[in-house]
Computed example of a mutant assay.
Amino acid sequence: MSDLISIKGGRDGLRLRLDDSAEWASLTSALEQQLAQNSGFFAGARLILEIGDRAINDEQMAALLGIMQQHGVQLESLGATARESRNAARASGIVARPLPRYSEPAQPIVQHEHEGMLVTRTIRSGQVLRHHGHITLIGDANPGSEIIAGGSVVVWGRLLGLVHAGALGNPNVAVCALELRPTQLRIAEQITRSPDKAKNLGPEIARIEENQIVVEPWEGAKRG
């Protein structure tokens, strides 16, 4: 993982923070590498980009947008302290907002994966729930929905859509649900599809064992 980029979630969505003191070519290379290596997590995402005190021109703004578009990512807004950077964003049709000065350097993505998100609603078809850490959903994930997490996924309800845990590359995570019948189940780079089940088998947990996804009843799962 690069130490030039950090990711964090919040009520306003995913925020990507770039080191404002790094050499520009190194920074854009690190950004492209992060988006490529974690394509399962970032594809289709709408991000808020924070660049701190860095001043960028129209050409550099276009380069950032080009990298993101190449990897299927949309830039929601730009946070920057430099007016030049905010003007470049607005000239590209991107919402820009002032940003407090960075008080500490960016930290690697992996240092934030422990952070969790609690959601209490139904995720309907066409909706995507995405978070860099763990996700706990109290409700159902309907067919056609997607849950993408950097950590584990726990659903207190029916999980019937696509789910991808460990989407930032961590295989030591799990997917749990009261009814685990996703159209596609993915943990890190391992992928499987839910077998047809005549009835709900009760709470189940899925995780990687010996390089493959194993699903078992929650009561019989190994703890620890």
Rank of each mutant, 00 (worst) to 15 (best):
D3G: 11
L4V: 02
I5G: 07
K8Y: 02
G13R: 05
D20M: 08
S21M: 04
W24H: 10
L31R: 09
A36H: 13
S39R: 14
S39K: 13
F42N: 02
A45V: 04
R46T: 14
I51H: 10
G52C: 15
D53P: 12
A55Y: 10
M61W: 07
A63L: 10
L64V: 07
L64D: 07
L65D: 13
I67R: 15
Q70G: 13
Q70F: 15
H71C: 09
H71L: 08
T81I: 11
A82S: 14
A82R: 15
R83E: 13
S85R: 10
A89S: 15
A96N: 11
P100F: 08
P100Y: 14
P100S: 13
Y102Q: 08
P105S: 13
A106E: 04
Q107R: 12
V110Y: 05
M117Y: 11
T120N: 08
R124Y: 07
S125P: 05
S125A: 06
S125I: 00
G126H: 05
Q127D: 08
Q127P: 01
H131R: 08
I135Y: 12
L137D: 00
G139E: 00
G139I: 02
G139D: 00
A141N: 00
S145Q: 02
I148L: 03
A149I: 02
G150S: 06
G150F: 02
S152M: 01
S152P: 04
G157I: 01
L159E: 00
L160I: 00
H164T: 00
A167K: 10
P171C: 04
P171Q: 04
P171V: 03
N172T: 04
T183K: 04
R186E: 01
R186V: 00
R186T: 00
R186M: 02
Q190K: 07
R193A: 06
S194Y: 02
A206E: 01
E209A: 09
E210A: 13
I213G: 10
V215I: 06
P217N: 14
G220V: 03
R223M: 12
R223N: 10
G224A: 12
